[in-house]
């Protein structure tokens, strides 16, 4: 996403804060696939993911005033809200992690036009590739923590693995992801 797109998002969000429905729907069309994709990734079932995606956009409408473009891009703000809502639902319903994996590397991704620039998309793709190529035990603990809201000790119990092992796997995996992320930043 280039600076013009970021500025355009900021302008649209100011309009949304002023009650502009067209601006809201324009942003919905731009980000709905990312929001729904993340909700589906966390929750694993379409019906609840739809509810959460809808709730996230209602939050965008009612809290548009709190969005500050100087702090980051709109997609990150919106996806953070989505993850938070989805994790709250998981905790409220005491759900187990979904058995179907909507981000399975073997599954052909559905083509959805994406608002991100090639550079930005490449960086996210690099991180996703790095995540998928981590040793499985490291990838799993990161996914259980980030996408399913589980703490170290909950993961240890869920996987029947010693707590120290879980901590080490998570730390090593995140260190590798941070290296990939930092390299992406330098090359941009």
């Amino acid at each position: 996403m280039n600076n013009i797109d970021l500025a355009e998002d900021a302008v649209l969000m100011r309009k949304v804060a002023g009650g502009d429905r067209r601006a809201f729907l324009s942003l919905y069309d731009k980000y709905a696939a990312r929001v729904y994709g993340l909700a589906l990734r966390v929750l694993g079932d379409r019906m609840t993911a739809e509810e959460i995606a809808q709730d996230a956009f209602v939050r965008m409408w009612t809290r548009a005033e709190t969005f500050d473009p100087k702090r980051g891009r709109l997609s990150s703000w919106l996806l953070t809200i989505t993850r938070r809502l989805a994790l709250d639902r998981i905790r409220f319903e005491s759900r187990r992690p979904p058995t179907s994996n909507y981000s399975n590397p073997g599954e052909a991704p559905e083509y959805v036009p994406d608002p991100a620039s090639e550079t930005e998309e490449a960086r996210w793709a690099t991180l996703k590739f790095a995540l998928n190529t981590l040793p499985e035990e490291q990838r799993l603990v990161i996914e259980l923590a980030f996408y399913h809201g589980m703490s170290h000790s909950q993961i240890a119990e869920y996987q029947a693995t010693p707590l120290g092992t879980v901590k080490t796997r998570l730390r090593l995996g995140m260190k590798k992801l941070r290296l990939e992320w930092d390299q992406g930043e330098k090359s941009n």
Binding site: A33, R34, Y36, E50, S76, Y102, S103, E110, L127
Partner: peptide, 16 residues
């Protein structure tokens, strides 16, 4: 930064 990247790592899916 990594956490933000993970937010975007989920595949986009067209909603109903």
């Amino acid at each position: 930064g990594v956490a933000q990247g993970l937010l975007h790592a989920a595949d986009p899916k067209r909603p109903p």
